[in-house]
């Protein structure tokens, strides 16, 4: 097994007095897509928030060998971790172009940023025609794509994707996962994706963790999980 890019060990997290994670451990290797599955309230979103530092957490979190457990969200982003929060994570009052520019906010390499902008717009050509449009006026699917495009502007080493399928039409969901897989295959992007839609998530991911009540209940390769009786019944629905 290759060296882990991201490693969580016994991570706990709480919202005020309410404990949401009870010791979650997981790893993401360089160039891997890993899915986190589970029911509502199982702690999927909280797991991502613990990584990016938007929830109080304890336990070990290592990124590329360095501990990030005490870091603020700003400085986690500066390490090259792009967190795409759930629910069309765009800055709705700003234009499409401004959203993209902010994606590269922490970068200083002007040449690289321009290059990435060309690459991203090549992947989402319709964004170029909507440059001046306010992000809040895009459709749900378009906003989710914009959020993805903006995350790419960071040139991330790891992308955290929170429920990209939420509230989207099936064709939009398929399109988003097609793009994520393509990014992974061609550019070696590492992805940790949280999903309720287990079928589509297991298609994209090579491995997955199933959370139940803030703990990892099952983990394994995607094929293995698809064959797992209880996973199939609870999350795949057949």
């Amino acid at each position: 097994m290759p060296e882990s890019l991201l490693e969580l060990e016994g991570v706990e997290a709480r919202y005020g007095p309410v404990k949401a994670l009870h010791g979650v451990s997981l790893t993401v290797a360089e160039g891997e897509i890993v899915a986190v599955l589970g029911a509502n309230g199982a702690g999927k979103t909280t797991t991502l928030r613990a990584i990016s530092g938007t929830v109080g957490r304890s336990g070990a979190i290592r990124f590329a060998g360095n501990s990030i457990a005490g870091r603020s969200p700003e400085s986690v982003a500066r390490l090259g971790i792009a967190h795409v929060p759930e629910g069309r994570g765009t800055l709705s009052e700003l234009s499409v172009a401004e959203n993209l520019r902010l994606g590269a906010y922490v970068r200083r390499d002007r040449v690289g940023i321009r290059e990435d902008e060309r690459r991203v717009l090549g992947r989402f050509p319709w964004l170029d025609d909507r440059r001046g449009q306010r992000a809040g006026t895009l459709s749900g699917g378009e906003q989710q794509m914009l959020a993805l495009a903006r995350a790419l502007m960071l040139r991330p080493r790891l992308m955290l994707l929170d429920e990209p399928s939420l509230g989207l039409a099936p064709t939009a969901v398929a399109e988003i996962f097609r793009i994520v897989r393509d990014l992974n295959e061609r550019e070696g992007l590492s992805v940790l994706v949280v999903e309720q839609n287990a079928i589509i998530a297991l298609e994209a991911a090579s491995r997955a963790y199933v959370l139940e009540a803030g703990r990892v209940a099952v983990e394994g390769g995607s094929d293995e999980l698809r064959r797992n009786e209880s996973v199939r019944r609870s999350y795949l629905g057949y």
Binding site: T54, E74, A77
Partner: peptide, 8 residues
């Protein structure tokens, strides 16, 4: 919240 995730 989201701005922080962008590193601002």
């Amino acid at each position: 919240e989201e701005s922080r995730l962008l590193g601002i």
